[in-house]
Structures are given as C-alpha cells and as structure tokens.
Design a protein around this nucleic acid. Structure first.
Lengths: 220, 220
DNA sequence: ATTATCTATAGATCTATAGATAATGC
DNA sequence: ATTATCTATAGATCTATAGATAATGC
C-alpha cells in the first residue's frame, strides 16, 4: 500500500498525468493489448520503475482511464430534469456519446478482451449499459408521449438495444469497414446518422424533416 | 520450406486436424490473444516442437481456421440463381450466418485486434464484408421489387450497413450485454430477431405477419 | 529414406519489485 | 524526512528453431 499523498508535489502530479496521457494516446493508436508498460514509460520519458511508483499495475492505469471515460459517458447520458426531453436532446446526447467514445476508443476497440480480463471494469461497464438503456428508453418514451414517435413496446425495446449495440461497436465497425487500422480518429457523423437511421422509420414526417435540418445545419 | 506432402500419413493428418480443433475450441473459449502455442500443444497432447512442424506460426493456425470460416460465410451468402430471393431466403441466410459466426466466434470477439495484426486476413475479411453487402442489397432490392418492402435508396443503404454492423458485432454485444464472458455459445435467436427488427418497419403488414409465423414455427 | 515427434533451448518480451540515488519541503 | 526517480534484475511467459530420436513406408 502506498501512503496517501495529501498534498501532491507538482512534478509528480504532472508525471502521473503524463503517464495517463501517453497511455491513452498509445492505447488509442495501437490497441491496449499491443502496448506494454515499457512502451508507456519510454513514451513518457521515464523509467519503468518510476511508472510502477505511480501505478500499481498496467491494469491500474486502464482503470484510471476508465474512470475518466465513465464520467464523460455519465455526463453525456444526462437528460433535462425540468422538462420533457425532445429531439434536440437526443441529437445532442448522441454527439456527446460519440465524442466521449472517440476520446477513449481503445476501450471499445478491444472491449470484450478488456472486460474479460478485468472484473471491476466489467461490472462498471455493465452498469453503464444499463444507464444508457434507461436514458434512451426515457427519451424515446417522451418522444412517443409527445406524439412524434410511434412504436410498440416491443419495437421500442428492439430499437433501444440496437442503438446501444451500434453505438458501442461503432468504433470497431468503422475500423473494419473503412479499413483504417491506425487508430486515428474518424468523423463521427456517419455513425450518428446510422443510429438516427434506426429511429427515422418510427418518426413523424415533421420530426424527420426536423432531423434533416439539424444534420444540414450542424454537419452531422 | 517444408516439402509438399502428396500422400499424407493418417497419423500426421489427424494431428494437424487435432491442433486446429484444439485451437478453435480454446480461441472460442478464452479469446485468441489469451491462448499461446504452448497452451494449444498442451491441450492437443503434443510437444510445442511438433506443433511447429505442422504449422509455421500461430498466425498460420489462425489463417487456416479463417479459411474454414470464409468458406462457411460464402456458402451462407449464396442466393438462389434461378428465381428472385424472397423473405424465407433472407430468414435462412441470417440463420446460416449466425451459425457460421458462432462456430468461429473468436474471430468476431477480437476482430479489430486480429485484423490489425494480420494483413492477409484483413483484406480477405474486407472482401467478405463487400460480398455480404452485395448479397444483402440484392436480397432487399428483390423484396422491394416484389412490393413487400418500401424504402428509399438511402434507407436501404443505411439498413444494409446497420444489419452488417449488427451481425458482425453481435457476438461482442451479446457478450458484454449478457455478461457471459466464458466464450460459451449463446442462442442466436435474439440476434436474428434484432436484425429482422431493423427491417420490419419497412415491411408490408402481410410480410411482417409472415415473419412472425416463421419465428414462431422455427423458434428463432 | 521419409515423415513425425520430442527435448532442449535461444532470444525476445513483459510485468513487477528491490534497493540505490536524487530532488524537494519543512 | 519524504517523495520521486533510476538502475538492475527476477521470474514468467511466449514464439520459434535446432537437432536428436522414433515411427512408418517402400
């Protein structure tokens, strides 16, 4: 056990952050399984021993990064609490989700492998999916209530699950479909349009036109 | 270079097959990145040296397995050539696809990582996606021609891409969503229903009822 | 004589730790 | 005195090969 650092020194704090930054960048570029603690130390410009002074293990680094990811996702899933959510909330939520996922895309690239090897992250991710499901359901039910979406309960369930599947594995699909395996960031616009494509057949014509305007105006 | 075996001895042939069988089973159960050539040799009951007599490398094993996968997928993608494909062809194709993928699920579990590390498999998989896209498009266009599906060209494109994404990453999504990380085979029924769920809003009511009957009758 | 198999091992990792040394804060 | 860092290394892999030995087929 390391003693708690109540007042961390500026230098060490920066080193810790630099390790996390380098890890995230390399994980995203090369895939987490293909990046060793030696690579990370090397890229950060420190010794492997120093890396293990700041982090218990490679998994510890992954978990710290995951905490950042989880915070971003939870923020993206927030819905307005004083009024019913509308189409523009859905549109914004999708943009925030794709942005957060893109920032931590290494997690989604090797999702099954990472979750298989780490029980803690596994259960936390499982709860993220549940929260996403709840959020999406709430949103779509509000749209149904407002009369701009028409779907049976079964349709709605299928819709929510398919949307979650598509968002979760968009990074993977985009990679294999486009053939860009270098881990570079890709335009989230197509992914967002595909998720919205799941929804459109259930939307009112007026709402569909509304979406078209949003897409044209903000370019995604 | 190994000399060509024109008339392979039965024993050796069996060993080769046993290596492939053990590899497939362990890859599916534990994930390809987590299975070493030592594990495979151990499970097959041979020495690591013997394994390398039969296969050039671990990648060689993966490629041999991939060839079997590719053949199964290509077979599943075949459409009738003497008549226009109909709803039941689509239904059958989905079943064959899910069956083939389930048999080689290790490929889909770590798809991006495997394709990143192996250029040959990468380009072959890319062509599989193209063939799947063509097959799906042909099928859906036939349905549109027959008047049982109504969708614009843009809708149809989105539909095809979303279906391919869902089928390709169903194994991954099912794993993280259900929380069963032991690599065991899961019921493909839900996955098939989800893919069909993409289609239903574009279908004629009569065709939708047809699907419901198929699902009830054959249990998926 | 050829094919199949095993033993033993080189060489390259990788994760993680022990222990020495340097830098900082009181 | 505490915190941060480095050097060096143990110990566990893992992939792959060399070279010896066994089994098979003509």
């Amino acid at each position: 056990m390391r003693s708690p650092r109540t007042t961390p020194r500026p230098t060490a704090q920066r080193t810790r952050e630099r390790i996390l930054d380098a890890s995230l960048a390399m994980f995203n570029a090369l895939g987490e399984p293909n990046v060793s603690t030696n690579h990370i130390a090397d890229e950060t410009g420190i010794s492997p021993g120093n890396l293990y002074y700041h982090f218990r293990s490679k998994d510890d680094i992954v978990e710290q990064l995951f905490a950042g990811y989880e915070a971003r996702i939870d923020e993206a899933l927030l819905l307005p609490d004083t009024r019913a959510p509308d189409l523009e909330d859905l549109w914004l939520q999708l943009h925030l989700l794709f942005e957060a996922i893109s920032q931590y895309r290494f997690l989604h690239r090797d999702l099954v492998d990472i979750l298989t090897r780490n029980r803690r992250i596994r259960s936390r991710f499982s709860r993220i999916l549940d929260r996403a499901s709840t959020s999406a359901r709430t949103l779509l039910q509000a749209l149904a209530q407002a009369g701009i979406l028409h779907a049976s309960d079964e349709d709605l369930h299928s819709l929510v699950e398919n949307a979650i599947a598509l968002v979760t594995f968009w990074i993977g699909f985009d990679t294999v479909r486009s053939g860009h395996y270098d881990g570079s960031r890709s335009d989230p616009g197509v992914g967002i349009r595909r998720v919205l494509g799941l929804l459109t057949p259930y939307l009112d014509p007026a709402a569909r036109a509304h979406f078209a305007r949003l897409t044209d105006a903000y370019g995604a």
